[in-house]
Write a protein that binds this DNA or RNA. Structure first.
Lengths: 349, 349
DNA sequence: TACTGAACTTTACGCGTGTTAAAAACACCG
DNA sequence: CGGTGTTTTTAACACGCGTAAAGTTCAGTA
């Protein structure tokens, strides 16, 4: 009866709990799967018992023999990237509300680990997976097979045009920042990102299209300085230093394909004593894309466009859970949901 | 026979696989639990079949009825913090090598979620948990009860002196950087961190002790500007701006309790046109603690001490797995393993 | 060849819960 | 009070694999 946690007696199985209440196990089981499915008086009996005893249903056993498991996976290519951790956070909290267990897996940039993570989720009959794919390196045919019997929602970067996808409208976001940059100064050159996924390609194309459309010459400033991998800041710094030192930096304004590149670019400019910003004495403007947590603490604070991570995460969960509702695992015409980005006007451009 | 993945026929249960090979299920089961435990000829038969068929054992079923589960949890207070994501990465890769499934949980700064995460791990009889506790807010008595029947290794911040702990030797790390700062310029004032866990307390104490020891007056520069929460950069910036604007900034050198505070401090200094660094014209030096991924891309690049995250993660896993080896879940005299930090000399101090 | 120990098969139970079908108990209503 | 529809109980099987015991086959040795 005591309110203190430590005095609650621990019950191991649902059977024990049922017996302590004076109900049958199936009834208690029904309660756990949907509290509304039992009579109100029964419900309050169970809930009173849950106050008094310390019982947590065994997640492994719970999900072993369900028609639809209450497990969803989220697989990200890199857990060191703040964008993905933010996404994980949103997905986890949002799925928790619907009573789902979220299994977080990271590929750590390795295609083998990505495959392994998905395999592992499949093995436990996860109800579905939210997948931010590695991109270029991912095993497409394998994913397509998986899609047959496990709902997948892609986020961040899409692999094909058939599967459900939630992400940022790169055309809108790039257009937004290009517009702003052109309005407020000289048209931007584009600092493109290492080819890890289709975001880079999409954004570069969006840039080119937009620039042409408004009558400017598009220019990729780091053309022919190829690099693959997720070490964006380092690449941004190295490439920018090379540009400055070789005297080939012939742009007043640089739009980076993502903020992490911009961090490197800003640090290179600082190292070489190049003032960045839109104030009088600065000769260079730098803008980014994504609005990472640290972007507002850059020196100078980074002007960028903010992806609506909250919306993306919540929508991805919603979409996945919807797919679970409809019984057919693979609907033919899958949804695509793109969210607009917001301009974050700061000091760097 | 085809090498192509998509042509492999998928087998659902271990029984199916055993039958396809012509072995009994228990033998195949033995193989999965320890490939060395079956005859070499049998092993190669199984491995050939695994090439030919697509089978992954069901993780839920596998761990439901084991004496010791092959599941370990890692619980972190904040998944948005690069230190923890790095730790997760190391732990995950290291545990994977030993055949363990790692379940990643984040408290998202909330004590209720932390309790829930641990409860959930306990419910699936996780073999053990690596826990970076929320700290101040954590429910100590609950954790002590848990410790009775589930091995726990604390990392990053300790809760008591009884339980296994792996972390950084804050005395050494602070001593190291204080020494350097005193040697190379005026003695540092200390920018302490919000009271989220014992790291802050330990580091502040280490600072005071060291300063006294070498004959300098210790000074906490943000004394009386209290704040709780994990939003370190923002706090660092706000507090520093206040210090500058009120004219109370009477220090040449600032040692921040962690890098994230330093990011905020640097950005505040930049905003106010205060040059930071150890070059001629700079009047202020700033140093940090942790060496986060972005620290080398700060403007100026942040001088700091690097925690040995790799070593900490690997040791935590090793310690946990060792505890699992010995049968008693709670050894009385638990180990404490502290790792030294390395000085990362950059431009900011 | 007989012997011995290791490896394997057979058989069977267990893990903790989901799920079902039929029977029993209950609540509500006229 | 009897009838009706809803809840709950009972009983049983299922999920996929771990594990144990006892019997069988196999390899290597005396």
């Amino acid at each position: 009866m005591s309110e203190k946690y430590q005095s609650k007696t621990r019950l191991k199985t649902m059977e024990d709990l049922a017996q302590a209440i004076g109900l049958s196990r199936p009834t208690v089981s029904k309660y756990f799967n949907d509290p509304e499915s039992v009579r109100a008086s029964t419900r309050s009996k169970i809930e009173r018992a849950l106050e008094e005893y310390d019982y947590t249903p065994n997640l492994l056993a719970m999900n072993l023999n369900r028609r639809r498991t209450r497990v969803v996976g989220i697989v990200v290519p890199e857990i060191n990237d703040p964008f993905f951790t933010h996404l994980i956070r949103v997905v986890q909290l949002s799925a928790l509300e619907s009573g789902y267990l979220v299994i977080v897996e990271s590929s750590h940039g390795d295609a083998g680990l990505e495959a392994r993570a998905i395999e592992s989720l499949a093995s436990m009959h996860a109800a579905g997976v939210i997948l931010a794919p590695l991109g270029i390196d991912a095993d497409l045919s394998r994913l397509h097979r998986l899609r047959e019997f496990m709902p997948i929602v892609f986020v961040d970067s899409r692999l094909d045009s058939e599967t459900a996808y939630v992400g940022t409208n790169n055309e809108q976001s790039i257009s937004l920042i290009v517009d702003y940059l052109c309005r407020s100064g000289s048209p931007p050159a584009f600092f493109t990102m290492p080819a890890v996924n289709y975001n880079g390609i999409e954004r570069e194309r969006a840039y080119t299209t937009k620039m042409t459309e408004i009558g400017h010459e598009p220019r990729i400033i780091n053309e022919g300085m190829p690099y693959t991998g997720w070490d964006f800041e380092q690449y941004g710094q190295t490439a920018m230093l090379e540009l400055i030192d070789s005297g080939k930096l012939d742009a007043d304004t640089i739009l980076c394909a993502n903020d992490r590149l911009a961090f490197g670019v800003l640090s290179a400019a600082f190292k070489r004593g190049l003032a960045v910003g839109r104030s009088g004495d600065a000769r260079l403007r730098v803008a980014g894309h994504d609005d990472q947590p640290l972007s507002k603490f850059c020196c100078p604070a980074l002007t960028t466009v903010a992806q609506d991570v909250e919306a993306i995460g919540i929508e991805a969960v919603k979409l996945l859970l919807d797919k679970l509702g409809r019984d057919g695992p693979a609907a033919k015409h899958d949804v695509e949901r793109l969210f607009d980005a917001r301009l974050m006007l700061r000091e760097s451009a």
